[in-house]
Design a binder for these strands. Structure first.
Length: 274
DNA sequence: AGCAGGACCTGATGGC
DNA sequence: TGCCATCAGGTCCTGC
């Protein structure tokens, strides 16, 4: 499941190869992936467009075009964006193939078909509800202790649910929410209002730290995730709790537990996290 | 308003 | 062996 570190790794990969390239065509094999505009308009608009830069906001990738349009991609759980300098073979889950004038291609592949693609002018990006409502980038100055305090005082939900809420902070998903809470020593089902100011501060640093480390290790590959060149991430080897239930905590030896919080499988150490 | 839970979707897994 | 039920999770939608 691509979360911020995975999407950022893909962004960096694409930023090395896409700018300057010109789309020759796009072939749509599963129209459900294209949310806006209609598929016919999408396929007619793409040819001739030159890529200017590649950005990211939360888990949304943004491929900016020189004519002002933006190609926005959300990979959800199993989506992949793969670049190849030469034409590639389709598989049964390839939904879009963008071909460039030099023969390179960018494919959108998604087993679960949850991923979404938009082509819009920037002033209409606000029509993508999830993008418009995103909270601050966790690695920017907008996400700070003052912000945490202001947003955490009136909440009745659990701390895990808050970390997963993209309106609170953009880009955390199930893996890094669990990992940040373990680093902070906070049990995932704790009520937000029960956190002390010291715990808020420790959690703030834990979120930033785990995201930085995961970006440095090029993301986490549990099953589906690949970067833009098809390579695995490496952070799965450094996970402390996620999907480690039944195994000993790397810090205290206690057995990692799995519970359901906010409707999500949640992993934590009963001794380290209180 | 804020929150919880279901729907979406397919492949992997486990039980019988 | 084969079939069926269950589970995984990001976001949207519905309903309390």
């Amino acid at each position: 499941m691509p979360e911020l570190p995975e999407v950022e790794t893909i962004r960096r990969g694409l930023a090395n190869v896409l700018p300057g390239r010109v789309f020759a065509r796009v072939d749509v094999y599963y129209g459900g992936s294209v949310k806006q505009p209609a598929v016919a308009e999408f396929t007619q608009t793409i040819p001739g467009q030159r890529v200017s830069s590649v950005g990211r906001r939360g888990k949304y990738l943004q491929i900016f075009l020189e004519n002002g349009l933006v190609l926005v991609v959300h990979l959800r759980m199993t989506g992949k964006l793969l670049f190849s300098p030469t034409p590639i073979e389709l598989d049964k889950h390839t939904h879009l193939v963008f071909t460039f004038t030099d023969g390179a291609c960018l494919t959108f592949n998604d087993v679960r078909k949850f991923g979404t693609v938009y082509l819009l002018p920037p002033h209409r990006m606000c029509e993508i509800k999830g993008l418009a409502c995103l909270g601050p980038e966790p690695l920017s100055a907008d996400f700070c202790l003052e912000y945490m305090k202001a947003k955490m005082t009136k909440r009745k939900t659990s701390i895990k649910a808050l970390l997963l809420n993209q309106e609170f902070v953009a880009g955390l998903g199930n893996i890094y929410a669990d990992e940040a809470l373990h680093r902070a020593g906070i049990k995932p089902d704790r009520a937000v209002i029960s956190l002390t100011s010291q715990e808020r501060e420790i959690l703030y640093h834990a979120v930033c730290e785990v995201l930085h480390e995961a970006i440095n290790w090029r993301g986490t590959t549990m099953s589906d995730y690949r970067d833009a060149s098809g390579s695995y991430g490496q952070f799965q080897n450094r996970l402390r709790v996620y999907q480690r239930h039944g195994k000993p905590c790397l810090y205290c030896g206690e057995r990692i537990e799995r519970i359901v919080v906010a409707g999500r499988g949640t992993h934590y150490c009963p001794a380290c996290q209180t």
